[in-house]
Design a protein around this nucleic acid. Sequence first.
RNA 1: GCCCCCAUCGACUAGCGGCCCAGGUCGCGGCCCUUUCAAGGCCGUAGCGCGGGUUCGAAUCCCGCUGGGGGCACCA
Length: 476
Amino acid sequence: MLCLLAARHVSARILPSMATRVRFAPSPTGFLHIGGVRTALMNWLYAQQTGGAFLVRIENTDTSREVEAAAERIFDDLRWLGLDWDEEPRFQLDRVDAHREAAERLVAEDKAYVDEGAIRLRMPGEGETQWTDLVKGTLRFANADVKQALRPRDDPSAPGDMVIVRADGRPTYNFASPHDDVLDGITHVIRGDDHVSNTPKQLAVMRALGAEPPQYAHLPMVFDDSGKKLSKRRGAASLQELEARRNEPLVYLEEFRAVGYLQDALINHLVLLGWSPGAEETILPLDEILARFRLEDVNPSPARFDYKRLDWMNGVYLRALAPEEFADRLVAYLRQEGYEWDEARVRETAPLVQEKIARLGEYPAFAGFFFQSAEDVPAAAAELDGSVIAAAIEALEPLDEFSPEAIEGALRPLPERLRLKPRDVFRPLYTAVCGRPTGPSLFHSLPLLGKEESLARLTRAGEHAATASADVRVQE
RNA sequence: GCCCCCAUCGACUAGCGGCCCAGGUCGCGGCCCUUUCAAGGCCGUAGCGCGGGUUCGAAUCCCGCUGGGGGCACCA
């Protein structure tokens, strides 16, 4: 038992010395899916750990402006996450000629044949195809079953040989992909679970090509909250757009970016989907992940994407940032999201919100009142309390120095004086100043607004409170 | 329909035959702290899908069932 354990770890260390090459191969359809991001991450981690190369291959079927744009977005997403790749990204379509020639060679060797203009690979009808998957262990398929699956359901007399080049000359995915892997010298194919049943077909291609097959690692799927596969849907790339339909779960990396998650938190959360360091730790900075991640330890069962846990984790990372770093991130984030707010003011207010928000995207709603004038701050009458506000005005009015300490000295005694709970005093005040019952420390926010503006807001809110209660009385 | 995979608290997981009347984290509940809200502290909640084996002993090994998922094209 002991030596078995040892062997497992030894093999993981020895294999890498043979210059591993892995690849992430997204298709350029729309946005980069978060499940794909995890696949990319695990490929990248493996390459980093083994000193190998991480390649990106765009599996495009055509070359259009859309493909170009989608590829560019994928590169941008990977760069944003810090998953930098080696060598120039490949485009599958750039190698159609090579694929076609390889297929023709197979025909010449009688390993494939032409059928109604298409080229089909002769598939073995007996025996089985098996491989040792790095995460799933030994996987085996009866060759007869593989063939059977290749026949259309309504045509049991079909040959059951895989088309590798279509009649129109375009190579098929299950031929192009393994051939690309051969051409790129890929040693480890790390990809989603949904490719398991493609693997025997691709191994058949490898075999026919006379190539040494790579190691395979099939990562379990990522499900959404409801336990279904994270589905593709219309992507949204801006905070406003996402807020408009906030009940939809995020699925694309751009969406996670748009609501203000940090790279480190996202990576930390993603790597914990299907893998655990074994020890009782949850917060793992990248260097820690790099030191401890083992592809062999990824567990084979599917995982749900836990949004609440991500929020918690993002908050942890946000709070751990040095204040200047936090401000930098916030400024960059707001700029990216199109807020043209005064940078100096954002920086001033940043320390007041750092401990309060879990995502950078919460800032506009939480601290937007700093960028509004008294008239624009919404007056939520229900939360207001005229007498409390009047007392606050009275306490603040005489202050010469409008400092946090002075304000605290003036407001802190209010609950006791009014014989109210602190909560019943401060919620109305927050509402008056921030437009909602919660916000960053009043003592620190008011000096930033200035005495005049602060009193203006309180006064205005006081009037609202008065008319509101008058309305109520009239109705009664 | 056929093939393949998976199965520990609500979620992510630790567990590799005795150290487990199952541990950690999120969530949820309570209490404390508190200028609102958070954050923080403390306490609590809750799980080995079912049935058979194997074994002195099983969450851990084997078989079956059930449940979930993935895949079955001249799509990628």
